[in-house]
Design a protein around this nucleic acid. Structure first.
Lengths: 322, 322
DNA sequence: AATAATATTGGAAACTTTTCCAAATTTATA
DNA sequence: TATAAATTTGGAAAAGTTTCCAATATTATT
């Protein structure tokens, strides 16, 4: 049906090996033959069947990207740069939104085992058994696995500490923490640890809501927090969605920001997408994305990689702190 | 290296054909043999090499999704549902952000020709030559091609008309239009047409900025508009980013919204991304995504499809109109 | 001009699967 | 029990590449 390398070979009057060499332009082919072959290719409108190519080479040059949900500023931005960086190395990216369903993770592992993709980036996930994971080229963001899965993260602990102290130095007397607890071992937990440490250091009471939650629960959680700790005058909010919901709710309750209540969020700012002007810890999403792709490609080629990469955040001042 | 169907056959003491039949569980295989084979598969930890499978079947079960940029509420939401719907049919989705580079489009066409993907969804694009397009299973959103590319769109003309009249009925005397002109034949142009028609109908002056622009130009374009047409008391803003930027700029200029200036946007509302509460025409993104995937899969299987599918928008009242 | 060294070429084998045909086995029928 | 019919099975062929080895052609060296 479609023209194959054989057709080209016949048309050009050469062997298939020669045609292959021309396609992959290897040097060892005479000038006149090369020309003949190129002409034949053009004449027959040949294009290589990459399924056969991949089978022969045993590589797909595709990686999978697993995010909880693509329709979210953080993950969309991450996906953008993952795709861009992967492209630089000749890899395509298959997108998978896990929607908190663990099957999606096993699905990807199966895809790797079945040679449908060469490897995967797991941004967050819920799987507990890890036997299969170790056999596959997988890298991660924020999640801390066993020893075999390299990951990239940001300086959660330091950044949170700095954020909290910033509010305290500007007069906050009762400082709260609101977040969504990860289901698995994640560097995001460092934010909670930092909070507890700072409260201890300043001898302040713990005002924290940090439970495992579903996407969509934000309003309830925030209302809960604001009722329970109505008297806080400084809050650290972990994550974009929570920060947006929290801000809105606080305003609605008549809290004056920042005079009456200061807010610092982690990931609270995405200039391009919202008009919010929140003081925020900003993660180096682009660098995290590019680095995680580079790690994965190294892993695919069985090269050595560092196990943990920590990148610096930026503390961005906005209108929600004094 | 890896265990193949041959190894399994040898281990189970049967022929490769039989193993294949078991894997794809066809009925014509005896109960005892089936059991033997399944045991062998488990014992050898066999998993099928899907590259070989795809080569043999001549289908990849992958589709490409080309968006201008994934890091944008509209396209991210679309991608989310495209992935979900494709998954229902057993297809994976390769994500490509074109970033307004025409090469990305030809790249995808090449991928189709090279049998790396079975087809593609083009959300918007810039390509002018269409010869190759017609040979490939491609569907589109909003873009109107020749006769061979089915597409899905929303009722741009009606929705815009309705939005404009809504403001006029509530007292707007001087109504403007601000948008980003598509580079190619797109249903988005219907918004401009609706504006011109309504202005003619009400005998109002044209206050319009609607030029081809780059991502990032929004601030300049908005400033331009607000200077040129400082006296408008109603504006239709086309697209999410523009609407956010416009709102912010108008507030900064001290315009009172909606008393002094009403705003209706097309696509101005994405709850998950921003807290803005704008009166807006909301596109049925989920349905558009699902429909476009269904169209593509039909095209891949050479089934008949309708050329143009128009879905209804919703007019959502917010705080930016009286 | 003869030989050695190098460059180019052809084509079989391999990659792993599905599919098809013929052969072998089982079951049903008389 | 013999035959017909139906079911199950084995294995070669095909899908379209790349790669390797041996063979041929070219160029350099004496």
């Amino acid at each position: 049906m479609e023209t194959t390398i054989k057709d080209v070979a016949k048309y050009a009057g050469v062997g298939v090996g020669t045609v292959s060499r021309v396609i992959n332009n290897e040097k060892a082919v005479g000038e006149k033959t090369r020309k003949k072959v190129l002409e034949a290719m053009k004449a027959l409108n040949y294009s290589r069947n990459n399924m056969a190519f991949k089978l022969r080479k045993n590589e797909t040059r595709i990686i999978a990207l697993l995010v909880p949900i693509i329709n979210h500023p953080f993950f969309a931005k991450l996906a953008y740069y993952v795709e861009d960086e992967a492209g630089k190395f000749g890899y395509s990216v298959i997108l998978v939104s896990s929607q908190q369903r663990v099957e999606k993770e096993t699905e990807i592992i199966t895809k790797i085992m079945h040679r449908e993709v060469d490897g995967a980036v797991f941004v967050t996930h819920y799987m507990h058994e890890e036997e299969d994971l170790n056999k596959c080229p997988i890298v991660s963001i924020d999640r801390t696995f066993g020893d075999n899965i390299p990951y990239v993260t940001s300086d959660n602990y330091d950044a949170t500490k700095k954020a909290l102290k910033y509010m305290i130095e500007r007069g906050a007397k009762r400082v709260g923490f609101i977040g969504s607890k990860p289901l698995v071992n994640s560097e995001v937990l460092e934010r909670e640890r930092a909070y507890l440490d700072v409260m201890a250091e300043y001898n302040m009471p713990i005002c924290m809501v940090n439970e495992v939650m579903q996407h969509g629960d934000e309003k309830v959680v925030v209302a809960d927090f604001l009722e329970k700790y109505a008297d806080v005058d400084g809050v650290f909010v972990s994550g974009y969605t929570l920060s947006q919901v929290f801000y809105e709710a606080a305003i609605k309750l008549g809290r004056k920001i920042p005079d009456d209540l200061q807010i610092v969020s982690y990931d609270g700012i995405f200039k391009q997408w919202s008009m919010s002007n929140m003081t925020s810890v900003e993660q180096p999403i682009e660098e995290m994305a590019r680095e995680v792709v580079r790690l994965l490609i190294k892993k695919i080629h069985n090269e050595e990689t560092s196990q943990r990469t920590v990148l610096n955040t930026q503390f961005v001042l906005g209108a929600t702190t004094k």
